[in-house]
């Protein structure tokens, strides 16, 4: 019944689109692969921009609003670029009762960024996670993908400080 339109051209000549393109084709351009494709796009670019969403929508033959609805439903997806470095403070229950809020407060005091915000110089994004499953090492903080356990505010500040001074 439905006919599939031709595969659209990527938004730009940026090589990373090839990876997104491959993910789309790997799933046979099936609409149900939307979330997988968005994951790939975010891995490649760090966030989902409008052009990219349009590209994925066209390639998967999906309505724009549906793609936007999905992209904003799941909290892992970000529609704006992150800073050079990310510091993810786990706010799972174990981390919460063992002092994660204090770490966030310390980061905010020192760098003026609340969770979800990026410093003006674009160096640091502070994020929170629902639970990264490192409860045995609570409180946990993820510095650019590297998990640090049993953190206290001063440790976290020290790790971040290293980035900021480069």
């Amino acid at each position: 019944m439905s006919s599939i339109s031709a595969m659209p051209a990527p938004p730009s000549s940026d090589k990373r689109w090839k990876l997104v393109d491959a993910a789309i084709k790997r799933h046979g351009r099936a609409g149900h692969s939307l979330i997988e494709c968005l994951h790939t796009m975010q891995e490649c670019f760090g966030y989902l921009d409008e052009q990219g969403l349009k590209y994925v929508a066209t390639a998967l033959n999906l309505p724009l609003s549906k793609v936007y609805g999905v992209a904003t439903f799941y909290h892992i997806f970000s529609l704006k670029p992150q800073g050079e470095h990310t510091c993810v403070v786990c706010m799972g229950t174990a981390c919460y009762i063992k002092g994660a809020p204090q770490i966030l407060a310390a980061l905010e005091e020192k760098y003026g960024v609340k969770p979800g915000e990026t410093t003006k110089d674009n160096k640091l994004s502070v994020l929170t996670a629902r639970c990264i499953g490192s409860c045995g090492l609570a409180p946990a903080v993820v510095f650019d993908g590297d998990v640090g356990g049993k953190m206290v505010s001063s440790d976290a500040l020290k790790r971040v400080e290293k980035w900021m001074n480069i």
């Binding site: 309505p63 609003s65 549906k66 936007y68 609805g69 904003t72 439903f73």
Partner: peptide, 10 residues
């Protein structure tokens, strides 16, 4: 059949 509308966020 246009699917202009959807829900964003949660």
């Amino acid at each position: 059949g246009a699917h202009v509308w959807d829900i964003m966020g949660r």
